[in-house]
């Protein structure tokens, strides 16, 4: 049917919304970051970088992503492969595996707090096994490694599901014949996984890694619940400068740092896992 204007009319609300709530604030956050008082410049960034927590926050954030994302990828691939081996009960197991997808990062943090706090379930469990006599504080502010491990575990528990869903959906798009052909030609299960499944899964791997890495840089409430302010993170610092220190300029500078590492990581994954045009299915 004719009516050339119709698609634009249908698109207009979404386009206007994106302009008002995505493009405008994206520009505005940069404007705020580069203005201090009436001056345009790097004053906010200098203030941010001069604060003793900045280096730790940046380092913690990158380190956490570097530890958590690969583990999640491995776990998600493993879960996905296991599920494809199953016949009966496959749907139920997949549902269970994806449950954390519906859980807020704040709730996830509190859930692991219930397990890891001094009088929590882990210590109680060890006590019942006779391995522990009295409660041990695992999440104290002095125990940097303990906090980091706790946050990492909670993140892996909570956010592996999103990768799993993307990867399982991607695996579903790979025709069975490729794997069957490889099997007939004598490839072992591991060889099939490495030589057939993984290369064909590249677009999904790319999406999963990009999405998950960006979300890892945004880690916030899990840390707040488990470590309070004892483990500085970029997102937590952004919040602190915005809300507690009431300094929007520095908060916006933090936001740009998060944005910067997000874009950088996206570009890396886009380049690293690119599929040449000719090799597309």
């Amino acid at each position: 049917m004719p009516s050339r204007a119709l698609p634009y009319l249908l698109l207009a609300p979404a386009a206007l919304f994106l302009a008002a709530f995505f493009l405008y604030p994206a520009v505005q956050v940069a404007v705020i970051a580069f203005t201090r008082g009436d001056e345009v410049g790097l004053a906010n960034f200098a203030r941010m970088a001069g604060h003793w927590k900045f280096d730790t926050a940046l380092w913690n954030t990158i380190l956490l992503a570097a530890v958590v994302v690969p583990l999640q990828l491995a776990l998600a691939l493993f879960m996905g492969q296991i599920v494809t081996q199953m016949g009966r009960g496959r749907d139920l197991v997949l549902y269970v595996f994806t449950i954390p997808l519906g859980i807020s990062d704040l709730a996830a943090g509190i859930i692991w707090l219930a397990i890891l706090e001094q009088n929590g379930f882990l210590n109680s469990f060890l006590y019942h096994l006779g391995l522990l006599d009295s409660p041990v504080a695992r999440l104290s502010y002095q125990n940097t490694l303990g906090l980091f491990v706790a946050v990492a575990i909670a993140e892996i528990w909570r956010a592996t599901a999103i990768m799993l869903v993307i990867l399982v959906a991607g695996m579903g798009l790979i025709p069975k014949e490729y794997n069957e052909a490889a099997e007939v030609f004598g490839a072992s299960p591991w060889q099939r996984f490495v030589k057939v499944t993984l290369p064909l899964l590249k677009p999904s791997l790319q999406t999963a890694l990009i999405l998950r890495t960006i979300l890892a840089f945004e880690v916030f409430a899990v840390v707040a619940a488990l470590a309070g302010t004892s483990m500085p993170m970029l997102m937590g610092e952004t919040y602190a400068w915005e809300f507690q220190l009431q300094d929007r300029g520095v908060a916006a500078s933090y936001a740009l740092v998060i944005l910067g590492i997000s874009i950088a990581s996206t570009l890396v994954f886009l380049w690293w896992l690119r599929t040449p045009e000719e090799a597309r299915a």
């Binding site: 705020i32 960006i214 840089f217 945004e218 997000s262």
Partner: peptide
Amino acid sequence: RAFPLPLLALPLAVA
């Protein structure tokens, strides 16, 4: 999707 969207809350708080 390749953008840390919650950060948009910062400039929007001003607006």
